[in-house]
């Protein structure tokens, strides 16, 4: 039963953080939201009995992806200006 609730709750959190990543105007904040999504995703992988993928997702998705996103944002523009 608890597992079922987790299986509903974690995807909801992932969807929520991905919505944040899409909708936030501050790109650094969006990148952090992507990192949060990756971290939650790796938790979900762990609960779905895929520890291998969870390690890879935590290392690549949450750390390196954020690093290169932040590098790219720092060398371009931080705010998304919509006109």
């Amino acid at each position: 039963m608890i597992l079922d609730i987790i299986h509903i709750l974690l995807p909801l959190l992932i969807i929520g953080s991905s919505l944040f990543a899409v909708l936030l105007k501050d790109l650094i904040a969006a990148a952090i939201a992507v990192a949060a999504m990756s971290l939650l995703l790796s938790l979900e992988f762990f609960i779905l009995q895929a520890p291998d993928v969870a390690i890879a997702e935590a290392g690549i998705g949450a750390c390196l992806t954020t690093a290169i996103l932040v590098i790219a944002i720092k060398s371009t523009k931080r705010m998304e200006d919509e006109k």
């Binding site: 520890p51 291998d52 969870a54 390690i55 890879a56 290392g59 690549i60 750390c63 390196l64 690093a67």
Partner: peptide
């Protein structure tokens, strides 16, 4: 450790490589 024990415990070349690469990225920062 993750790389070396890839065939026994969760892990392997990719996962361990990703972990070490994030460590190196920390040095970079």
């Amino acid at each position: 450790y993750i790389i070396a024990h890839g065939h026994l415990t969760p892990g392997g070349g990719f996962q361990g490589g990703a972990v070490v690469a994030s460590g190196c990225a920390m040095i970079l920062v």
